[in-house]
Design a protein around this nucleic acid. Sequence first.
DNA 1: AGTAATCCCGACAGATTAAGTCGGAATTCG
DNA 2: CGAATTCCGACTTAATCTGTCGGGATTACT
Lengths: 170, 170
Amino acid sequence: MSFSTKGEYGVRLMVQLGRRFGQGPSSLAEIAIEEDLPRPYLEQLVMSLRDAGLVISTRGSHGGYELARAPEEIPMIAVLRALEGPIAPMICATDDSELAHEPTCDRTARCTVNFLWIRIRDAISSTLDGMSLADLVPERVDLAATRPIAIEARPAPPVRSARTPDPALA
Amino acid sequence: MSFSTKGEYGVRLMVQLGRRFGQGPSSLAEIAIEEDLPRPYLEQLVMSLRDAGLVISTRGSHGGYELARAPEEIPMIAVLRALEGPIAPMICATDDSELAHEPTCDRTARCTVNFLWIRIRDAISSTLDGMSLADLVPERVDLAATRPIAIEARPAPPVRSARTPDPALA
DNA sequence: AGTAATCCCGACAGATTAAGTCGGAATTCG
DNA sequence: CGAATTCCGACTTAATCTGTCGGGATTACT
């Protein structure tokens, strides 16, 4: 069970953009060097982020990418969905799962097991719901200093809402 | 982000064994037919489960597999770990992750991002901690009838309440 | 206008892994 | 003995992920 490195690289890219938020567009080449990642590959990833409305691009000289909104307004679940697709621990644990497979619910354990995947999916979703990019933007040093608070003070993500409607959140 | 079908098949196998608990060993061929899964592949999977001490095997004629303990005593996290390896959403998010990579914590976002994987890993772990094989063993019909109880009776998972799983895509 | 920087995008290659198969050896029951 | 069954390693095939390449489009600056 794992995410792909696509997710890893993409999140690192977003963190870099988060650090530079408000400074105008940053070029991919710059970030690729800073993070020591292959630039051509980042080019692929950033397109998913752009299509999801999480970053905006500026073409031409002195162009680059920047966050579409402040890091606080970018839920991590949107980032990972853009990079990795829907959060589904198993193919059947997507939207339609609850009823779509009823007809095949004979004596096999298929649908029974589905219950498990849905629970896991919800656990991941609610964790991610409680995190925004801002939670990852500080440098490691800062993060380490506040970590006990960061972890304990946010036990069960209270699913904060009432913020600008998220276009990437479907 | 997903589990492999190895996990799916393996859990279904475990559910079948759970249904037959106390009836002596069941052959794989039998279960493969019931679940409509390739028997040779199940053979591979069940070895992981055996090595993990979750099932015991009886060789020879009239042999087969059976649960090593009652379904209530088999936490689902053990089943998935046996089938899929450690619950690590990213390679670095295993136990040692916290300190092993400190030296490489320069200005890149690598370790910062690690924080995210650890949160996700913990969310999955605590969900799975609250479930045993017994929660999946009843037939689908029975499960549906008793589900509210099955969920509430185990307070552990910090998953949001008994509401039916969010149909709005993870 | 020209040039350099940058995004944009499709196609491709290589590596890795997952999924599934096969054949046969070892073990046990009747 | 012979049938049923676990056990186990090797193999194949298919898919996916990771990463590369080449060039076109767009813009800022001089």
